[in-house]
Amino acid sequence: MTIRLGGILAGIAITGVLILWSLMPGLFNYASPEKPDYYAFQEENIAPEGGFSFDGAFGTWDYAQLQRGYQVYKEVCSACHSLKFVAFRNLQELGYTEAEVRAEAAQWEVPGIDPKDGSMVKRPGLPTDMFPSPYANEVEARAFNNNALPPDLTLITKARKDGVHYVYSLMQGYNEPDPEDVAKSPDFETPPGLYFNEYFYNINIAMPPQLLDGIVTYSDGTEATEEQMAQDIAAFLTWAGEPSLIKRKQTGWFVIGFLLFATLLGFMSYKTVWASKKAEKKNKAELI
């Protein structure tokens, strides 16, 4: 009884406190501070027509596309963005042979140590090396980029909401601001050194437009339009972020199929075990 009485009192006290001291001012304040209108960024990313080859439960990699995406990363993105959790040897998963990977790795310079005097030098990459960062450290990266830090791209498609489509959209988001929206948000401006991009949460991004038509020449002859390159780099970065994606989905079908089969057998077994009890119930019910 004492506990119940105490409970009731404590309950009234707590809810009273909430209502009187926290809730009421909240109710009065509610809807009072009008948020200033900001130029709204596009929360909904766009997707390429027909989607990506790896979309959906039955998706697969489009190796030609991944190789094109790698070319875009190598020739454009890698100037500023690292890919630090990917090793050159991983490129074999894109369909390159071991010899091609070795040759590819050798084209990159990675930090090394001079075997003679121990000084820090650049040496050609080996398949076991990770992709090198374009900058020695964060300070240098910021110094070269107007105090903005180009993020590592390994996990970018997982580290952003709807990341694959985000990359695809952002690459093509350097449009002119909508004059109507600009009129609605008088404070809107793009500061010098930043670029308008409606898919960036902040509207103004430090990265200049990159994928200008024809900036790379695809070795497979595909026309390097902005849309094409955006699609290819988004695909490549999806692979970089989650190399096990396709294997995971394929394993998943097998595992779920097996589990459902086992569940069905288990259910039949359960029904058999309980048959007598159910029958008893039925019989007794009829007798009554």
Partner: peptide, 11 residues
């Protein structure tokens, strides 16, 4: 009832 007994045994 006979069915019932049989089923009981089965389980």
């Amino acid at each position: 009832t006979a069915d019932n007994a049989k089923a009981e045994e089965g389980a």
